[in-house]
Amino acid sequence: MKIFNRLSFTSHPFVATIIVFLAVVTVMLLSAGSGEFPLSPSKVVAALFGFGDEFDQTILIDFRLPRIVMALFVGMSLAVSGAILQGITKNPLASPDLIGITAGASLAVVLFLTLFSDENNSLTVSIQWLPLFAFLGATLTALVVFLLSWKNGIAPFRLLLIGIAVAAFMQAGTTVWILMGPIYRASQATIWTTGSIYGANWSQVSIIMPWSLLFIAISLLLRKQMNILELGDDIATGVGSRVQLNRILLLLVSTGLTGIAVAFAGGIGFVGLLAPHIAKRIVGPKFQSMVLFSAGVGALLVLIADWIARVAFAPIEVPAGVWTAAVGAPYFIFLLLTVRRKGSS
């Protein structure tokens, strides 16, 4: 891993974060320019500021941009959610999809779509409520997984085993509800569970954006609590930290972020695992320096995955989740083989 050492920015996390977000903006511009009607970066910028011709603007503003912005927020949310989860469980292998939280949120979303749609397949309540449902699903699942893994504390590997099982249960539940629901909704739900940002629109972006920013801001506010938690429960209690309360608060922030991401992008896997690890390698393990950087990495991952999804086999879409899994699953196995089994007794 020499290359990572050379890329180390441990003493300059701020610079590193700026660089990663510059990369995010670059990828966004490049992605916005590619597709069936390629646009040069200068045309993209022109169109963004209202100078391009009308055709360019329509393609960009109405079709490509909502998707790209959605990918940005989904990636940031998943990454921060994973960073928090890895911190509070002291488990380097934890991430919302691996311990079943994503599957729980998915089940909640499918419940929402089937319960609140009428015979004409239109929703009877506002789509604004969807993130709340996904959040509830994610939170309940997280609590169930934590309760079931509790046995004189939560051993990291037990958490993962129980998470895998709960995820399987939630997936089975999702299948049951998809089968029970109206056919049109069912086919929609099937596409969506694969993890794809296909068909994102501005109204969805306007729902995810404030929540995502709010939760990421809260996680930054809680950075001190997070660092103390990572020292271990004894030390944390010793310095007067209300350990369990903080842990629950942070868990809620994490499930909230997973919930909103799942609500609009389905189960895009492994981003919550990959992003914090990459971030830790480059800017070091301190939460406050790492969290924004991993948000940037998460955004990059989802942006690139969605870009490939859109362009690689055009006009067919290969869901973004396929590409993140192609990178994430091998990395997970690599971690599994190299990670020390600390505190797993």
Binding site: L93, I164, V322, A325, A326, A329, P330, I333, L336
Partner: peptide, 12 residues
């Protein structure tokens, strides 16, 4: 865990 990662990979 390796089994479940491989499952996720093949499934996607």
């Amino acid at each position: 865990l390796a089994g479940s990662a491989i499952t996720a990979l093949f499934a996607s």
